[in-house]
């Protein structure tokens, strides 16, 4: 068990996990948005480390990543800021494999661990190529959070379930990150994860409204909200305004818990 495994299994006994996504370095004061979201009830923070060619991201996060790169955000600068902020909730970094590959796998794992990062999502790293990274990350107590897609056959879901640490990222639809009209295939994907393993399943990809979040939380153990929040920040929302948005998502999740 990794530390993230332990913390998220404990969290599951208490409430549905709300996981907002922020892009590291999007604005100079991006960590204040993180602090505000924690005040508003975020349980885990996903931090995007920008990459020039984000294959799994739609237009909103692409635009945010480009802006962050323009602000000279790097793996090191973002880790430095995370380290300084020392957030009390678990931090899970989302980045593409080349960023880690270029910095060095062991060096990346050490830097992330020292910065208080509990887990990493690498969307272009499927289980076939996972081992070198997962081994060095696990040694540093940095979890590898893996995705299950609607297209994943049961046998793959079983193997992903065995390897994913902390939680399983249940992709609600066959799409890249973005905003959508419903929760898609969340029910079927989470069902497949539940049948395969006991790891908490968090629903993401296309979760846009509080109603989506409530519905997704009745299905899974947590909800990841990315593009819908990044769009607000790109549109100039203040940390206080974001705190309000997160509170709305929080209430939706708590409502789902009380319905369950």
């Amino acid at each position: 068990m990794t530390s993230l495994d332990t913390r998220l299994r404990d969290l599951r006994t208490r409430r549905k996990a709300l996981v907002p996504y922020f892009i590291g370095g999007l604005t100079e004061d991006w960590t204040t948005y993180v602090s505000a979201s924690i005040l508003a009830g975020a349980d885990v923070i996903e931090v995007g480390v920008p990459f020039s060619d984000p294959m799994m991201d739609g237009p909103v996060i692409q635009a945010g990543a480009l802006r962050a790169l323009g602000n000279a955000a790097t793996l090191e600068s973002i880790c430095h800021e995370l380290s300084a902020a020392s957030f009390e909730v678990p931090i899970v970094v989302m980045t593409y494999y080349n960023v880690l590959h270029h910095f060095g796998l062991e060096r990346s794992a050490e830097l992330l661990a020292q910065s208080g990062v509990a887990g990493v999502i690498v969307p272009d790293l499927a289980i076939e190529e996972l081992t070198p990274w997962r081994d060095v990350a696990t040694a540093a107590d940095v979890s590898s959070v893996l995705m299950v897609a609607p297209s994943s056959p049961d046998e793959r879901v079983r193997r992903i379930g065995e390897l994913s640490q902390g939680f399983v990222y249940a992709a609600a639809r066959m799409a890249v990150t973005g905003q959508a009209a419903d929760v898609g295939d969340a029910s079927r994907v989470v069902g497949a994860v539940r049948a395969a393993c006991d790891t908490p399943a968090y629903v993401g990809i296309g979760i846009t409204t509080a109603e989506h979040a409530r519905e997704a939380a009745t299905i899974g153990d947590g909800v990841i909200v990315g593009s819908a929040l990044v769009q607000r920040i790109l549109d100039g929302a203040s940390a206080q305004e974001l705190e309000g948005a997160i509170s709305t998502f929080r209430r939706a999740l708590d409502q789902a818990s009380s319905e369950a």
Binding site: Y97, L125, E129, V148, S151
Partner: peptide, 10 residues
């Protein structure tokens, strides 16, 4: 190798 999102692996 194969460095693609899980959605494309199948």
């Amino acid at each position: 190798g194969r460095f693609v999102p899980e959605a494309l692996m199948p």
